[in-house]
Design a protein around this nucleic acid. Sequence first.
RNA 1: GGGCGGUUAGCUCAGCGGUAGAGCACACGCUUCACACGCGUGGGGUCGCAGGUUCAAUCCCUGCACCGCCCACCA
Length: 913
Amino acid sequence: MLDKTYQPAEIEPRMTEKWEAEGAFRCGRPDRRGAEPYTIVIPPPNVTGSLHMGHALNNTLQDALCRFERMRGRDVLWQPGTDHAGIATQMVVERQMAEHQEPDRRAIGRDKFLEKVWSWKEQSGGTIINQLKRLGASCDWSRERFTMDEGLSKAVVEVFVTLHEQGLIYKDKRLVNWDPKFQTAISDLEVVQVEATGSFKWDSSSGEDLDLAALNKLLDKNPSGHMYHFRYPLSGDPTRFIVVATTRPETMLGDTGVAVHPEDERYADLVGKTVRLPLVGREIPIVADEYSDPEKGTGAVKITPAHDFNDFEVGKRHGLERINILTAEAALNDEVPEAYRRLDRFRARKQIIGDLHALGLLAKIEPTTHTVPHGDRSNVVIEPWLTDQWYVNAAELAKDAIAAVENGRTRFVPENWSKTYFEWMRNIEPWCISRQLWWGHQIPAWYGPDGHIFVARSEAEAQAQARVHYGTSTAIARDPDVLDTWFSSALWPFSTLGWPDETPEVARYYPTSVLVTGFDIIFFWVARMMMMGLHFRQEVPFKDVYIHALVRDEKGQKMSKSKGNVMDPLVMIDEYGADALRFTLAAMAAQGRDIKLSKQRVEGYRNFATKLWNAARFAEMNECVRRRDFDPRSVEETLNRWIVGETEKAAKAVTAGLESYRFNEAAGAAYEFVWGVFCDWYVELSKPILMGDDEPSIAETRATTAWVLDQILKLLHPFMPFITEELWTHMVEHGEARQNLLALAQWPVLDGLHDQKAADEIGWVVDLVSEIRSVRSEMNIPAGAKVPLVIVGADKAIRARTGRHEETVQRLARLDDITFAKAAPKGAAVIVAGDTTAAIPLEGLIDMEAERKRLAKEIAGAEGDLSKMNAKLDNPAFVAKAKPEAVEETKERKAELEGIIKRLSAALKRIEQ
RNA sequence: GGGCGGUUAGCUCAGCGGUAGAGCACACGCUUCACACGCGUGGGGUCGCAGGUUCAAUCCCUGCACCGCCCACCA
């Protein structure tokens, strides 16, 4: 016997255990041996992570697909695992060490530090996996992988070495985005632009004093947001100046040139001359370069080739010196005059402004709005810094990856995301893959004493290479750097399957069926998997890429830990159950829009779960036991013929929704069927039969109810796995508890169950009952009062139909009697439902004035609609050009409205007489 | 500067060529034998603005306004 209420907290862990015990989610189960595989690789969450709403959405959708396909008989592999998340993890552990007042990583050394990270990973790395299980994720947990597993690390080395051999990975000295907090290079994608606006204004020509103290105070809060104009004196004529503008004063110490536009007449005579760089004393040339924009600033631009991406290029064109003036911590180094050495960049900024002002070389300060690059993890200002790093020739690898989407081998859903993908891929820059971190895959490169590089699959191999190269065995040292986390993530679709070994899993489950992810990692991850998958497997990593919305907070902001606006899915699960949360996310996952999640919505779907639970209780209480030989095609009761047809419709809608990644439509169709059709009507309409004495009808209705509930449980299972699995075991068959799992049951494939006659007849009952209820409510007939009903002017067919559903209509509309008459009695409320006119003759009980108004309003409404129909039909162009179905529909609607108006008008006339 | 998306009921959002929908909220009435996490009924929208295409436009096209996001640039 089912409990009175549904208790998710009690049921969920039991179901998880049950699935686990049965190995329900294992791929390659014996019963699926000949089946077509269906593969999804999970976007591996960071080991440091805990489940946030984005994960909840992402995994709910993947799980819905996996459960759906599993029930459709596919051999499903949902490959789980976690990502080592280089910077993020190293940051967490370092922060923890600091909190415990332990010595920092440099103090304890690389090996000790890595030991600590590993032990931290062992301890808390499983958190998110357990949270995914709580969500109900049907991953093949026996195959869990970690990006730094031995096997996956082997794949990383293999890919690195191969790409290096092919010339697609190389080492280069160029400007990189340098993160002074973590003291590592980062890729372009890890840089976020943050807008800065200043407020300080000063102009030397105004004659006012510069309030340096005020400026410095401002700069302490926000060092950016101002444009400074400096006077650089011309060599040989210190009374003449060229004025340059900059938002980063401290970089002037590294200036090695000034550029003006070749056609800028203001400066034409200065090109080829030099200026004496203030504070430094260096003679630097004035060059003509198109990069300089006469419209911007003063038209003359200072060139700092070692600290600005554009200046780097200008410098290259004119052979300007590159002077690196910064340390790894972004303090000034020994290349600058003594006074500035060791100063932090922002302190140096203030210092230089002051010093230039003292020399009378500061012309102007104006507030400006500009963007400043920040590290996405560190949140500190990024410095362009000249270093040696490893790069991937992404442009080369992108060729096949672009083609694969162009020719549809991989398809984005919704389709327009392919534009975003193309846009980035067609303008791709070399990918900087080395990181000056410790946690990650150490680069398999070794250096000889003269700096010669040996890239190899192992140290022994590198040594062998060195021996050949030097002719004698020579000491080599490994590159201390590790690879960008996304390098290993890029291999995830095949590295998790055992590659580089040619395992049976690679052969069977690659390429994967679909990748489900958010648009924020199209560049980071999707693009790179495409490149690597195609290069190493000559096959796309996934056929579809389903891009879902981002879950935002109620203000529409991206939820993030740093913003502190996260809504914890686990709290929601505790409060409302995993099924309710999942259903909410699926129901809101319409394509192409962000999801603003509200608690109320989750509560609403929790109520839905309860509704389902109680429908099952109803079935149980009425002994609705499924018959093994039950064939929905053979039911005879009109009501049952109707509901099996409706079930087919619902099954088709849910199936179509899931097949096309329209999760909201699938969930919505299931919801409407369960609540709006099955509970609201079928259950109510079945009560007279179940409580009657027609044994064959009772038996058929019980069996039908049980069958429909079975279909409902199946249709809802992808969204609400826990409650449906639990109820499934309660749906007995032949008095025996069910043995098989719903998770492995067969998805409903229904056809040929629609019966138009049954649909019309039940539709009539529903209309009639609804109309009576409406009139009762509007006429303020007490809800408890039973009233008689008179069917007016009924023909044979209506009489027969009424006879067949008399009891039902009486019960649902709270009637005590149904009779027939030629005309409506006096003082009655009149109802029109389809072709049927009925009256509630309660003279005295109802207010005839109110009834007159009600009828008048209904007539007016119908006449409004009718005139629209007439206008259409009177338009010759409509009749001539519109689709015949549209014309036909309009005519039918017109006739229907005319009938309603006629009968309502007759009723109104009687009152007015 | 380039690109993408949004503007529909009080709120959050579906719909996207032919009678405007849901959930929540609101109002009224209900111990109707599964369910008050419920049942019944109802109010509430000139579908951002202006043009155009079409027999017909919330839906397609163009322009505009505002909002959001992505990319690039920023002396």
